[in-house]
């Protein structure tokens, strides 16, 4: 059973404590707009921001370089990425507006993500989605994204910060499918819906 919750709404006391649950006077309250899943006893956020975590793979745009070997990467409005190339042997170099994929190695002051293993992405399309929808777009053990990729022939790379890079195949259809997942993330049976939608189009 899924139940809609808003900030300040009281939750059952056995709700899993996570960042979206606040406890005061021994009672649990939601602090975000989301769903309460009574089977998992967990809160699933419907809206929210991406908080960088170590190991997250992200996609960002390189900003104008200020110091040699150090690149600022725009990940979201709130989080800035930083690549320090002198740490790497080969020392890859990037130019302004390059789209890169990287992994978060460390997080400083909640809004500075130190990136490692940066890789320049070739020509492709990037789209923005809400970061809270990313787990749904990936799906359980990547079922959703691999299905979209298989049926449209597009290569898809997903950044946890809400940027998705696509290339090859039927990109327009893949984008349409991803946007549909983003819009209807709160409904169930979505993998089947997307499958029938894509199969009808292809």
């Amino acid at each position: 059973m899924r139940q809609f919750v808003t900030p300040g709404e009281e939750l059952p006391n056995d709700t899993k404590r996570n960042e979206y649950v606040m406890v005061s006077n021994g009672k649990a309250y939601s602090n975000i707009l989301g769903f309460y899943d009574s089977d998992r006893k967990d809160i699933v956020p419907l809206e929210g921001l991406w908080k960088p975590r170590i190991g997250d793979s992200v996609i960002g745009v390189v900003e104008r370089p200020t110091k040699p070997g150090i690149y600022n990467v725009k990940l979201t409005e709130f989080v800035q990425g930083l690549i320090i190339t002198s740490k790497f042997d080969s020392g890859p170099s990037f130019e302004e507006n390059d789209v890169i994929e990287a992994t978060v190695a460390n997080v400083e002051r909640k809004r500075l993500a130190i990136l490692e293993r940066p890789r320049k992405l070739a020509v492709g399309q990037t789209i923005y989605v809400k970061p809270v929808r990313i787990p749904r777009i990936i799906g359980k053990s990547e079922t959703m994204v691999s299905q979209i990729s298989r049926l449209t022939g597009a290569r898809i790379i997903i950044g946890r910060n809400g940027i998705i890079w696509l290339n090859g195949g039927n990109v327009a259809l893949a984008i349409e499918a991803i946007k549909k997942v983003e819009r209807e993330a709160h409904t169930s049976g979505l993998t089947e819906k997307i499958k029938s939608m894509l199969e009808a189009e292809v």
Binding site: T6, G8, I32, L33, E47, G48, L49
Partner: peptide, 11 residues
Amino acid sequence: LANAGIKMKDL
């Protein structure tokens, strides 16, 4: 603010 997904103590 709730629609923006900003964490709040209350509405």
